[in-house]
Design a protein around this nucleic acid. Sequence first.
DNA 1: CGAGTTGTTGACCTACTTCAATTCTCGTGG
DNA 2: CCACGAGAATTGAAGTAGGTCAACAACTCG
Lengths: 234, 234
Amino acid sequence: MKECKNVCDTQSCFVCQRCLPDWLPAVKAQRINFEVKKGQSIFAENDLVSGIYFIYSGTVKVHKRWDKDKELIIRFAKAGDIMGHLGLGKDPKYPVSATALEPTVLCYIDRAFFESTLKVNTDLTFKLMHFFADELQHSRKSMLDFVHMSVKARIAKSLIALRNQFGMSADNTINLELSRQDLASFSGASYETLFKVVNELTLNKIVELTGRRIKILDEAELLNIINQDNLNVK
Amino acid sequence: MKECKNVCDTQSCFVCQRCLPDWLPAVKAQRINFEVKKGQSIFAENDLVSGIYFIYSGTVKVHKRWDKDKELIIRFAKAGDIMGHLGLGKDPKYPVSATALEPTVLCYIDRAFFESTLKVNTDLTFKLMHFFADELQHSRKSMLDFVHMSVKARIAKSLIALRNQFGMSADNTINLELSRQDLASFSGASYETLFKVVNELTLNKIVELTGRRIKILDEAELLNIINQDNLNVK
DNA sequence: CGAGTTGTTGACCTACTTCAATTCTCGTGG
DNA sequence: CCACGAGAATTGAAGTAGGTCAACAACTCG
């Protein structure tokens, strides 16, 4: 991980202004930007928490391995998102790993400095608390979905989620290239099962996967699958 | 839900002092205590968020139905715990339900008042943020466990979790009476499967279930089951 | 052009869930 | 005090989603 040449400490620096979420102006002084190559690890589970990361550009997957070739992707993070905030809790270890999916520029803020900023800046802390409340709600929801939805519905949900987070271009292609492997990990399914389901969806003209490109052809039908499944469990 | 006679607004009130977590002294003025009967609902999913609850005494299950006779118990809450804090997020609805498992006394704090207290009290907000970070970490972890652990291991984990949260008396009985139905919902398994697994555990002298009483005889073996399973997934 | 990944597919296999049948338990009214 | 009915406990049998494995195709990259 080499230090980015865009290290900056003035308001006028374009890079850093974008690097931080707009509600975090207070920490603009003490920070360092890093550049990470595609596929490179940013932090790994059980690493000691040393700070918090903000993404300036690129995309990162936050994931947890539980075996050599098995992992669950918990979420994706893109420009403007926070990472490593779980380290703010009691346990001073990152419970998950983060790996860059494309060349990524990150902004790193030392934990001690971040915490002392929080102590001073009520408003910031308040907003961060709200952010956590939202995250928690979202996390709970996806946990429930995992437990009671079928793999097919989970895949449909994953696709919709990707679309919502990254948007799609005019031709309905999701603005994120993703391997099937990662898609499987994100849906909590085995690679082969994902393949079979995606195949079926392709035959029914609901989605189209060419290489790492994902195209959603029939969103209504995807939503249908998700809902049907909710009912089918009866 | 009838108003409890122990409504109080002075420091000297025993009830209210215990009702609030020790790090929340600031809100001691504006609150109301309620009494809830066993099995009674405190709030249900999609209810509009009106406030936040603290448990003074008793036990509550926080759960989500997804069908008439299917639910997942997300967590249990006991004296001193917070409930309904997810409503602090963007979406002004409770995403889950809460139901009393035994006669319970709750302390209710209006959302607006709670929020304005937070705005003033930096330290409180800071601690709450940390609490959320911990919760989030815990929530993520249990999501992962659900995805990759076998039912047997999930049940073992549930038992350990109950022991940790509620403790056990001298004869190794967990200090919480729980129906098998609820135990199944907590482990994310069907009633029958839970039964069979519990049966096996009983035969092997690992646990003992008599009625709603749960006794842990061989904790080491339970932990073993959890770990074995982690490995078995290979 | 081989050797090594990475896609594709089919055939099992297993851990659950679901369903159905039976027994047990306990409250209630005759 | 007993009978009886409702609901829980208990158990077995059958069905199924989806994970695993193994084989092959197809596409890289030296």
